[in-house]
């Protein structure tokens, strides 16, 4: 069933070690209709769906420059004549309000919150991302499931459960991870907001009463999770410690190369 060679649900074999690399995607042929590939069981009712567009993901912690990059990349791609849809986590019209409520409500458990995010993501996927891919858009995702999986892992939810949960998501064409050292990141956060976010500091998992310490430890743990996912999902690590313009040039070049190569 659903044999894409991408099964993440397999209980008997350690999923780690096998790769779900975007680069293993079949090269798109001339006029671009390809079957949508999912990480796991997918959405069986969308089986054999053909897409023309491309899904490009930029991952990275808060204040890593993600939003700046996605904005300028979107502008450049549109200038080049691509139809672009920007998406991000917490953007579903249906659910995002609820997520904020749940966050404000500290009694909500980790699994509940995780499923909440997954529901929100599924809503965007089915109502925005997949239709856009069908229509030939370049979908530029400001974060994707990897952040959600990393958050779960750091909070002690089993990896296999998270990976299976997100088996309904399509495999992106390109995934970038903006790698910024936690010590550098903390300064960028302060420059941006002057305060540290409760969840982005991992305060909910009780690492330390000291918010600064907690932030640095939490972000280091998150970075470690991304390191672990690097091979498995084929993340391209981008050194985000450099000046933002420099990083942007590199991202844009990689994206252009991909889009031109797949024409």
């Amino acid at each position: 069933m659903a044999n894409h060679g991408l099964e993440l649900e397999d209980d008997d074999q350690e999923a780690v070690g096998r790769r779900y690399s975007p680069s293993s995607a079949p090269k798109s042929h001339s006029d671009g209709d390809r079957k949508l590939r999912f990480y796991g069981h997918g959405m069986p009712y969308l089986k054999d769906l053909e897409v023309k567009g491309h899904l490009i993901v930029i991952e990275g912690p808060d204040a890593s420059g993600r939003s700046t990059h996605t904005q300028s990349i979107q502008a450049k791609l549109e200038a080049d004549g691509h139809a672009v849809l920007g998406t991000g986590l917490k953007r579903s019209e249906l659910i995002s309000e609820g997520i904020i409520e749940a966050k404000g409500n500290l009694g909500v458990g980790k699994r509940t919150l995780s499923l909440f995010y997954a529901a929100d993501f599924a809503d965007q996927l089915e109502n925005k991302i997949i239709p856009a891919l069908e229509a030939g858009y370049v979908v530029l995702a400001d974060r994707y499931i990897y952040t959600l999986i990393a958050r779960n892992n750091v909070r002690g939810i089993e990896r296999r459960w998270s990976r299976s949960l997100f088996g309904f998501t399509p495999v992106p064409d390109l995934i970038f991870y903006l790698d910024v050292k936690p010590e550098e990141l903390v300064h960028r956060v302060f420059q941006k907001n002057s305060i540290l976010d409760y969840y982005e500091s991992g305060m909910d998992i009780g690492i330390s009463d000291d918010m600064y310490k907690s932030f640095v430890i939490y972000q280091a743990r998150m970075a470690k999770e991304f390191e672990k996912m690097k091979k498995l999902f084929g993340l391209q690590f981008i050194d985000g410690n450099r000046p933002i313009e420099q990083v942007n040039v590199e991202l844009q070049a990689r994206i252009d190369r991909f889009l031109n190569g797949s024409k």
Partner: peptide, 12 residues
């Protein structure tokens, strides 16, 4: 609500 979203909301 599409089936996956519907399912995940109940799971939540």
């Amino acid at each position: 609500l599409t089936p996956t979203t519907f399912s995940l909301l109940h799971a939540t």
